[in-house]
């Protein structure tokens, strides 16, 4: 429908890197200026974990049995709750408009924003997971696997969640809808992540699950930013 005269198709790679790092720096800077929002998902994670002993009883055996699933399900929910904020502020203040308009190619910016968001949610969550694992009596030899699966899995959650956030960016109350849309897509990550920990606590080798998580991460990294970029264009049409 519209043609752009004389667009520079051959943007050198240094340019892409500058765009990527510029966006990353800006998002991290903004996140550091509002540290409260940074802590919220972590608090949610810890509170959520702490509810389980109160719900199912303090027996170490029971808790150890459900630990893998609980640790992963709550990580999933914590990240999901943080997802809505990925584009919300930018949309409200109008910078998303400029981002959409001038970020060429858009998926580079999306990737940078996702990385920034993950560094602010998924990574800290991975780092405090051992504490939560301690509360649930997860065997100590499984903690390494827990952290590794979170390290591989949470970026996928951020990527997919970013797509959902982009689709619902112009909706005032998109939070619940976002969960409805995205949670089914999270299923493979949950199964592989929690599965790996269960396998380790049973004394087996979790390599297969971990490889699968890595493969899903690679696939998500290459495909989802394009979907998110398209979703942003659509979400901004209002």
């Amino acid at each position: 429908m519209s043609t752009l005269v004389g667009t520079d198709d051959s943007a050198p790679q240094g340019h892409l890197w500058r765009l990527f790092s510029g966006q990353l720096r800006r998002d991290l800077l903004a996140a550091v200026r509002a540290p409260g929002e940074l802590v919220n998902p972590l608090m949610f994670y810890l509170i959520g974990i702490a509810l389980f002993p109160m719900g199912v009883g303090p027996g170490p055996n029971t808790l150890a049995l459900i630990a893998a699933g609980v640790l992963w399900v709550l990580a999933l929910l914590a990240i999901l709750l943080a997802m809505d904020g990925m584009f919300r502020r930018d949309y409200d203040d109008g910078t998303l408009e400029q981002f959409n308009l001038h970020m060429q190619p858009l998926f580079v910016g999306v990737l940078a924003k996702t990385l920034a968001h993950w560094l602010m949610t998924g990574l800290p969550l991975t780092l405090i997971a051992p504490l939560a694992a301690l509360w649930l009596y997860l065997p100590s030899h499984a903690v390494g696997t827990l952290m590794l699966t979170l390290l591989l899995g949470t970026p996928v959650l951020s990527l997919l969640g970013g797509m959902g956030a982009a689709l619902t960016v112009s909706l005032r109350r998109g939070g619940l809808l976002l969960a409805l849309m995205i949670l089914p897509l999270y299923v493979p990550v949950l199964i592989m992540g929690a599965g790996a920990i269960t396998v380790v606590t049973d004394g087996l080798d979790p390599a297969a699950q971990i490889k699968w998580l890595a493969a899903i991460l690679a696939l998500a990294c290459t495909l989802v930013p394009f979907a998110t970029a398209a979703a942003l264009r659509i979400g901004m049409e209002q």
Partner: peptide, 28 residues
């Protein structure tokens, strides 16, 4: 129009995800 395109994206991503979901669920 917006709703249609948004649903299209979700349908495409879901379609790609279905075999992965099926495979991972098969682990059980």
């Amino acid at each position: 129009e917006t709703a249609g395109k948004a649903c299209a994206i979700l349908a495409i991503v879901g379609m790609i995800d279905i075999p992965i979901i099926k495979y991972s669920v098969n682990w059980w």
